[in-house]
Design a protein around this nucleic acid. Structure first.
Lengths: 156, 156
DNA sequence: CTGATTGCAAATCATTTGCATTTGG
DNA sequence: CCAAATGCAAATGATTTGCAATCAG
């Protein structure tokens, strides 16, 4: 079971990597080890991550990478829609967008981000936009509040 | 008609002002002319406004106010839920929250912000949050895209 | 009076940029 | 090769903070 999962993930990552390389080629950009590190780290991260966090993470692995490169790579990835971003706690945080689209519940106490999908909300959004003659490119929904765990903590 | 509207607005503003004063008193904070200017400017602004914009606006009226005071006042107002904020074009922008709650369509071309309300979306959000045992404090929905006008501009 | 607030300037934080050097194709 | 990319350090832009002077209650 574990093996199957790993294999599957790996295959998924390879597909992503191929897409990235193809994309770079089509724009006469170069595939570099730094760009791969960033992509890979995002792939393996199960939460949203900021440039700074990504930098520290890679540095702790003794990777040779500068923070400017991380900023540049994340911008590139966002431009190419390989990642999406959101803004919390005064910084921009990124996640791979290969996942299904989803929205966010953000805990104001612990900062935890819970992802969720609601097809109905998506549809209503499309409807609203249509009423304004507005062409949707992307959207971003954040619900702030207190997660179950932090509510319970409060009771102690 | 016009007179009636002005009167009504004025009354509404007075109510808001009273609320603000009461709130300040209850926290042993002081009512200052700078705080009033900020509140009043927000009240009279029909769009979201950044600290910088607020500062320039007040300066152009020769008001005596420093930008640090504006930042401090906006934080205070947000903490007290008198204003809400959103993050676009790399800055935080504020609006009075005495209006009915609403969400935003943001044009990626001209930066225009269109407000809308969807009771159905609100309800779905509550439902989702409930499923996660999440207690909603606030939320924030931004739909990015291209507004009708900018789509038409593109066609010329 | 006296603690809160202000304006200013300096500090900080996230992000961007210039540039000499390195590297991928 | 050589244009693109990198790392570094310096620059930028938004926001915050320290502090002496001022002001509200």
């Amino acid at each position: 079971m574990q093996i199957e999962t790993d294999f599957q993930s790996d295959e998924e990552y390879q597909t992503l990597l191929k897409r990235f390389k193809k994309l770079l080629k089509s724009e006469q950009l170069k595939f570099t080890s730094q760009r791969e590190k960033v992509l890979e780290t995002l792939y393996n991260s199960d939460t949203h991550i900021s440039s700074e966090e990504l930098f520290l993470l890679l540095k702790s692995r003794d990777e040779n990478i500068g923070i400017a490169t991380i900023y540049r790579t994340l911008s590139l990835l966002e431009r190419e829609k390989i990642v999406t971003s959101l803004y919390t706690e005064n910084v921009k945080k990124y996640e791979l967008s290969h996942k299904k689209h989803h929205d966010h519940l953000i805990c104001s106490v612990c900062g935890k981000i819970i992802e969720f999908v609601s097809q109905e909300i998506e549809e209503l959004q499309d409807e609203v936009a249509e009423n304004f003659g507005f062409k949707i490119l992307d959207h971003n929904m954040q619900i702030f509040g207190i997660c179950k765990e932090c509510q319970n903590k409060g009771k102690n």
